[in-house]
Nucleic acid binder design. Structure first.
Lengths: 210, 210
DNA sequence: GAAAACTCTTGACAGTCGTCAAGATTCGCG
DNA sequence: CGCGAATCTTGACGACTGTCAAGAGTTTTC
């Protein structure tokens, strides 16, 4: 289908125009998905919030599910390195902890719809087997992200992590989710609490220096 | 509507037969909801898995949403004291930690559908405002439950909790959710990991003895 | 500039959904 | 028993869903 293209890669439109369109569609879809959630986002609604008509979805995606999964993977690519700057720029354990806390708060402020969508999809994957592979991969990449932060934190503190990455990820994910819920509920202080909790929790992740 | 009843409370059917039926309906609905999730549980499907027909729902509930919320609240009542035995029977900090870990594992084994439903509904509440009040209340009662455990743990260890209940709840909820996901994905060791993680984590919740 | 390939729109399809009204059935009480 | 209220079933409604086919519009190719 996609390899019809023109011999070599002439100018810049071999067949990755397909991919560009898929990405454009995914971005539109993500806006709608973040607003309505997985269940109530119909293809027509998704198309209405884009420059396309509802039929075009089946030209670029075989399925509604393929669109959704593509969207989630696309979202993951753009998000999984959000904390790389924290790791790169931190100069001390305390500095890293504060930058990390700030970044988590910033993430909720700026991307709450994307994250509630993520939790929505992860919950759906508990019922819908066809979502599990994608969800598992994304969860793993998020865990790796946390792992990089904790490792760097331990290195800066001249010691080692006290917990497996899996546990640290579960913990941060849990309190992040609580903060997101609080934020969406309009609970004052939810974000400041998150920041303080993270800063307070980080030292516990380290083995005491010998 | 419900106060039509017969003057005083004759035998045992004044009008709380209504309530009994609502509970019966809720139990059926919970079975279906736990299997299919919130989004794909239609009233017809719920009714099919019960002894009633699909129309009867609107005799006992004004809305689909009212049924769902009633179900969630009903589920909460039966579940919020699951760990009371742990608190009551533990004889030492280590004993409590182990009992708690065992109970968490047992919960996943026996009630995975109910818990994925809970996470589903909590995610939905991020999009659907009408679910938030019920979800917030349940989340609070779960947090209280964790609080009782941690308090008792601290008392047995003759010290005090090192973290606010809110944080402890977020952490346990996070690793529980990861374990549930792992369990549903068929990942071997997910449950044993959970048990070990809990036992390993508990001491961190305490302030070192003076 | 015509033909072919690609892209997109439109409209229809079969199915499902929540809701509700009309009527059948059951129950409780005199 | 018999009557009236409570309970439940049935069937229909309008709206919405994912999907897809037919064709219009656009771009590419020779």
């Amino acid at each position: 289908m996609t390899q019809v293209a023109a011999h070599k890669a002439s100018r810049r439109t071999p067949a990755d125009k397909h991919d560009a369109r898929r990405k454009a569609l995914a971005e539109s879809a993500l806006r709608t998905l973040g607003e309505l959630g997985y269940a109530r986002s119909s293809l027509r609604e998704i198309a209405n919030n884009s420059e396309f008509s509802h039929g075009v979805v089946h030209y670029y995606f075989s399925d509604k599910l393929e669109l959704i999964v593509y969207c989630v993977r696309y979202y993951k690519e753009t998000c999984v390195h959000r904390y790389d700057g924290v790791v790169a720029e931190a100069t001390s354990p305390e500095d890293l902890a504060e930058r990390f806390g700030d970044k988590l708060v910033e993430t909720i402020v700026e991307e709450a719809p994307m994250h509630r969508l993520w939790y929505d999809l992860r919950s759906q994957s508990m019922f819908e087997e066809s979502l599990r592979e994608a969800v598992t991969q994304i969860d793993q990449s998020l865990e790796d992200m946390i792992g990089r932060i904790v490792d760097r934190y331990a290195t800066l503190a001249d010691t080692e992590p006290a917990l497996p990455t899996h546990v640290a990820y579960g913990m941060f994910d849990g309190i992040f989710q609580q903060a997101l819920l609080g934020h969406l509920n309009g609970r004052d202080g939810a974000l400041e609490d998150l920041r303080a909790q993270v800063v307070g929790l980080m030292p516990m992740l380290l083995t005491p220096k010998a």
